[in-house]
């Protein structure tokens, strides 16, 4: 027991560093995912068939293939197509995770936008508001509250999926667990699991609070 404790305390600073890496990956990826997902969602409900088809195709591919494969594709295969596409682990991981979550977030955003009553669009149009202005001022702000619960789920999934980038050699929580355990201390998976659990619980509570905050007008 003494041994475990000493060994744990010795690794605690590294453990915190790795937690920070995991969180940075999740936040950066969800940011990429949100921006790109909003664009995909707007394309998906656009008047232009080409935009709708492109967006549909993207979502189809990224939701229909394994995330690990997408990570390998971006990190190993792209540089073979063109050396200009070579990236270090960090950006490659953020891009891969971000592009994947964009596909899921796009569907969440689209669903929320389309759930807003058609009367809102008509009222805005009758007041002379353009489509862009109506989206920005009327539809998207109302969609946000409806997006929060599925968005929270997606973020928590993404947080756990960051463990996949250990496969390209980025040292985050999962890779640390593997490294320590391969040195003979396989119990180290337990504190790692605990950290994931603490993080996901924390964000569950945060998203519940956000949902409440955004429902003041209902």
């Amino acid at each position: 027991m003494e041994n475990f404790f000493e060994s744990f305390m010795k690794r605690f600073p590294t453990l915190m560093d790795c937690t920070r890496v995991t969180l940075t990956l999740a936040f950066s990826a969800v940011l990429v995912g949100m921006v790109f997902g909003l664009i995909l969602a707007l394309a998906r409900i656009s008047r232009f068939k080409l935009l709708r088809s492109l967006s549909w195709f993207y979502i189809w591919v990224f939701r229909g293939t394994p995330m690990l494969l997408q990570i390998f594709l971006i990190y190993f295969i792209l540089p073979q197509i063109s050396p200009a596409l070579r990236m270090s682990e960090y950006p490659a991981a953020i891009i891969a995770l971000g592009l994947n979550s964009a596909a899921y977030l796009a569907e969440i955003i689209r669903g929320a936008i389309q759930s807003i009553d058609k009367g809102q669009l008509e009222a805005a149009k009758a007041l002379g508001m353009s489509y862009g202005l109506t989206m920005k001022r009327i539809i998207i702000p109302q969609s946000i509250r409806r997006m929060i619960p599925p968005f929270g789920n997606e973020f928590i999934t993404l947080l756990k999926d960051t463990s996949l980038v250990s496969a390209i050699g980025l040292t985050e929580l999962m890779r640390m667990a593997r490294q320590v355990s391969s040195g003979g201390e396989s119990w180290f998976y337990i504190p790692i699991a605990a950290i994931y659990l603490i993080l996901t619980s924390l964000f569950t509570v945060i998203f519940q609070k956000l949902e409440k905050k955004y429902s003041i007008y209902e």
Binding site: G119, A123, K125, A126, L127, G128, S130, P141, Q142, E218
Partner: peptide, 24 residues
């Protein structure tokens, strides 16, 4: 479409179901 929007804003419309913006 700019002119259509201008026209829309010059004719006020009141709906059966109010259609107020609920977040404002």
């Amino acid at each position: 479409s700019k002119q259509v929007l201008k026209l829309c804003s010059e004719v006020g419309m009141v709906f059966q179901r109010f259609n107020l913006f609920p977040h404002m």
